[in-house]
């Protein structure tokens, strides 16, 4: 009895530690004062105001559009790459996989400054395009890593079988291989989308020209004080992701996105 009580207490303490800042943030999104020190009564005005703040609306737009395009492009390139890598000769596959793990293992700050140096070298003005290219770059490896295990689960010679039965190589990939590996593709896409949404460090070094994602806007604000509107927006995003994750994980015949 005491032991199980202690275990619950321990879990509870870690839980409080992880959620204290989040609860603080949500509570202060309803605070009727710009200060984050005092509680001045309940209000919903920050939720109404946030859509009138041009900086916040613009960064939300950039964040979502970049996450969406980056996830789509990374999923396309990454899926094809995974199929290609799967059928490569072993020694070459080893080299390509080592290169694939580079951005995953490299610290974000190094990836960020490396890309910044490259963009400046090729005279690409830092802004929307450079940000997008950077996001695609760090997302592709995660798509490949998500798709490859599904390819390994394919019955060997599926490709040859489809060709023997008269499918063109293009049809084989599109109608035979892709449907089989689709859970991996979905995981890769969702992973890319969240990574892009959440990235700060790489974006920080590769953006410019007034193009700001939410992370960068928040970082700029930390110097002068976070606007309560940002707390309101984050509360909404948090709630949306919570609902989305619950729906995904309740999907019948699910392939558990959260755990894989």
């Amino acid at each position: 009895m005491i032991k199980s009580g202690l275990k619950k207490l321990y879990m509870g303490l870690v839980f409080i530690f992880l959620y204290a800042p989040i609860v603080t943030l949500i509570v202060f999104s309803f605070n009727d004062s710009k200060s984050r020190a005092k509680w001045e009564g309940f209000t919903l005005k920050w939720y109404a105001n946030m859509f009138h703040d041009p900086v916040i609306v613009k960064s939300l737009y950039y964040t979502l559009i970049i996450a969406l395009i980056a996830a789509i492009v990374a999923t396309l390139i990454g899926t094809f790459a995974a199929i290609g890598i799967h059928y490569m000769k072993k020694w070459f596959r080893g080299i390509v996989m080592n290169i694939t793990y580079l951005p995953v293992l490299n610290p974000d700050i190094v990836t960020g400054i490396g890309l910044m140096l490259l963009f400046i070298l090729i005279n690409l003005k830092l802004g929307f395009e450079s940000l997008l290219l950077a996001h695609i770059t760090f997302c592709i490896p995660y798509v490949i890593i998500s798709v490859l295990p599904k390819l390994k689960q394919l019955t060997p010679n599926t490709f040859e079988a489809a060709l023997d039965l008269g499918a063109t190589p293009f049809q084989t990939i599109w109608k035979v291989i892709v449907p089989e590996i689709s859970p991996g593709i979905v995981t890769g896409f969702l992973l890319s989308f969240t990574l892009s949404l959440d990235d700060f460090v790489i974006s920080y070094f590769t953006t410019g020209n007034g193009v700001q994602t939410l992370s960068i806007t928040i970082y700029t604000m930390t110097k002068r004080g976070i606007k309560p509107e940002i707390n309101a927006l984050s509360t909404i995003l948090f709630a949306a992701i919570l609902v989305l994750l619950i729906l995904i994980n309740r999907r019948p015949g699910k392939n558990n996105v959260l755990l894989d």
Partner: peptide, 13 residues
């Protein structure tokens, strides 16, 4: 899944 800058900043509060 909540922005890590905001979560860290909340510790200030």
């Amino acid at each position: 899944w909540m922005n890590f800058l905001l979560r860290t900043y909340a510790w200030l509060t």
